[in-house]
Design a protein around this nucleic acid. Structure first.
Lengths: 132, 132
DNA sequence: TTGAGTGCAAACTATTTGCAACTGG
DNA sequence: CCAGTTGCAAATAGTTTGCACTCAA
């Protein structure tokens, strides 16, 4: 993680992201930024979003990898995701179906299911030492 | 969603997936399948995994899109994901931090945070009609 | 001055698709 | 026989990277 110098582009990218309630893609941010900086490159947007995320100023939301994963267990269940190696494991705990209704009502949305993801370090990675 | 004929390859793909507790990628399944069918193509694996998922026989785990999304809200919060259009919205409900510990203990893993994702149909999509 | 930031284009990776041959019902 | 399945290769889509140039500290 390198130190961050100040940059007009990055500032604007952050402002754009802060100015929306949606959870935009890099492409969307690029489109917005291009209105004021027609020559900005998509690479710059990716680089800056990545840096901002690395510094904890914004968040990237996905499973930590863009790769699709599949599982044969189609019963509702939750997952544990290792933030070091990206491995995924099923949680051996019962799913509280009523939580979907409770959360939906509280949040004012219409959902028919929910999934919980626990994030941490898996046993294998923990064994390999504490450095990141 | 087309009808599914029986196919040796698809049967094996399903068996391979059922034979692991990991949550493999298409590439991983491909590697396994190639041990017994050296000429199988990656396209076949993708097509079959996709079909099995479409028919609800297996599950695909991700946000419904392989595109990375970013958000400026770095405080812990949950999300609502529309299964029609893939849009993501923050849930305006407080996060129960103690749930991380409770779930971790019950599942026997070491996690330091959790995230809940509600899945359903967003208001905009619901308005556009019931067909899907 | 010097290392970070940028535009541009090329490279990469994961996934999808067109096509001709094959196969199950 | 006919629609679904497959291998192969080419095409996409999203993301990353090398390079030369610019800019901030």
């Amino acid at each position: 993680m390198t130190t961050m110098r100040k940059s007009r582009k990055r500032d604007r990218i952050l402002e754009i992201l802060r100015g929306t309630r949606s959870h935009p893609t890099a492409e969307w941010v690029y489109g917005r930024l291009r209105r004021e900086s027609p020559h900005v490159s998509l690479g710059t947007v990716y680089r800056n979003l990545g840096q901002l995320a690395e510094h904890g100023i914004i968040k990237r939301i996905d499973f930590g990898s863009a790769v699709e994963r599949y599982e044969a267990n189609i019963l509702s269940h939750h997952h544990f995701v290792c933030e070091r190696c990206g491995s995924v494991a099923d949680l051996e705990v019962p799913v509280d179906e009523s939580l979907t209704r409770k959360l939906s009502q509280a949040a004012g949305v219409k959902a028919d299911r929910h999934e919980i993801r626990l994030y941490g370090t898996c046993a294998a990675c923990a064994r390999k030492g504490r450095k990141g």
